[in-house]
């Protein structure tokens, strides 16, 4: 994570087998720090940390602020934006919503127009869905993401039975105490060490 905001850290050790339980957290939306506006493709590779081949072939659904992205090499992501990612999608609408779909004209009103963006840094909300959330949960959380402290506490609390084996890194205390702390702050930097 490059030069992100200074916020409380939530460093957690999680058994790798519990990774799927965190996919829902990603779907709710996580923050990724963006040093300056850049094309969607570069954002996914350089800031989110996805392999270019994976992003190219496994993420047909790419949405910037709720509209489909076709030209990901030239469409800019800027601070304050929301980027949603989906794996393969069924249905006529699903086909039409694919990046560079042969049926993209079906949703011509839902296509990102060209725009410029001021060269400022800031947070981008990333929402990976379905397979992308499942497949990206480990590398993303290992790299570190920003999440609402209250949301994180609520998420962990709702899965207390499932996530009982998680612990804070370095034996800094129990998760329950940490959650009380997270609830008080707007944003925390969540980073996970996956344990075999």
């Amino acid at each position: 994570m490059k030069q992100g905001p200074e916020v409380p850290m939530a460093h957690v050790v999680v058994p790798r087998t519990l990774a799927p339980a965190f996919a829902g957290l990603l779907r709710q939306g996580i923050g990724v720090w963006l040093p300056a506006p850049k094309p969607v493709r570069d954002f996914l590779v350089e800031e989110v940390g996805l392999e270019l081949g994976y992003a190219t072939h496994e993420i047909p659904g790419l949405f910037l602020n709720g509209v489909a992205v076709d030209d990901w090499e030239n469409t800019l992501v800027a601070p304050g934006d929301e980027v949603a990612l989906s794996g393969t999608m069924p249905g006529l609408a699903g086909i039409a919503l694919r990046r560079q779909s042969p049926l993209r004209s079906f949703r011509s009103d839902l296509t990102v127009p060209f725009r410029s963006a001021a060269a400022v840094a800031g947070m981008v909300t990333l929402r990976p869905f379905n397979f992308v959330a499942q497949q990206a949960v480990q590398p993303l959380l290992a790299r570190g993401v920003y999440v609402s402290g209250a949301e994180l506490a609520r998420y962990v609390e709702a899965r207390a039975d499932e996530l009982g084996a998680c612990r804070l890194m370095g034996g800094e205390g129990c998760l329950e105490d940490a959650m009380a702390c997270w609830r008080q702050v707007e944003v925390v930097h969540l980073q996970v060490v996956w344990e075999e």
């Binding site: 709720g66 989906s86 794996g87």
Partner: peptide, 22 residues
């Protein structure tokens, strides 16, 4: 879609996606 998408989440995989697209 036929080998992975539909068997993985069923047709309801569209809920989040169509919602994201407004």
């Amino acid at each position: 879609v036929t080998s992975q998408g539909l068997p993985g989440f069923g047709t309801a995989v569209l809920v989040n996606v169509i919602n994201a697209a407004g």
